[in-house]
Simulated scan of single mutants.
Amino acid sequence: MPKRVKLDFGYLEFYENFVIAEINEGIHLVSEQNNILLSLCLKNFRNKPFGFISNRIYSYSIDPFIYLEAEKIENFVAIAIVVTTSAQRLSSRIEELFCKKPFQYFYNLETAKSWIRDRVNASGVTLD
């Protein structure tokens, strides 16, 4: 059973080696909120490699520069975006330009989970 965390701007569901984020409708995700997400991920995954899945069931926007901060986390290995519209797909393609970690968009959550698990398992990330 995943651990679900409610935030002012959405939800996080923590699994063994990835987290799924669902951000609320109309939010513009900026550095302050990203810092909360990153802090919770660091606390939950400690020294284990993990992936991040953004399940975009609602419409919201992101400051793409938040990816620069996320990349600094050594055990963060990949990000998957689950899109439902062509506009979300286009936004994710633009966001991908700001992220140096493996980054992929998908049309369903199960495929995104499978891809993230593969990236985490293949990452070879080990931290002391």
Rank of each mutant, 00 (worst) to 15 (best):
N24C: 13
E25Q: 12
I27L: 13
I27A: 12
I27W: 06
L29C: 03
S31C: 00
S31L: 07
Q33N: 10
Q33F: 04
N34S: 12
N34K: 06
I36D: 02
C41K: 01
N44T: 11
N44S: 12
R46V: 12
N47W: 04
N47L: 15
P49D: 10
F50I: 09
F50Y: 13
G51M: 10
S54K: 03
S54F: 03
N55W: 00
R56S: 02
I57L: 11
I57F: 04
S59E: 13
Y60A: 08
S61V: 03
I62P: 00
I62G: 00
I62H: 00
I62N: 04
D63W: 04
I66R: 04
I66G: 01
E71Q: 15
K72T: 14
I73E: 09
E74N: 13
A78L: 04
I79Q: 15
V82E: 02
V82M: 02
S86C: 01
A87G: 09
A87C: 09
Q88W: 01
R89L: 09
L90D: 02
S92Y: 04
R93D: 11
I94V: 15
E96P: 01
C99P: 06
P102M: 10
Q104W: 02
Y107T: 06
N108F: 05
E110L: 10
K113Y: 05
W115H: 08
R117E: 15
R117A: 09
R117M: 10
D118P: 06
D118G: 03
R119K: 14
G124Q: 12
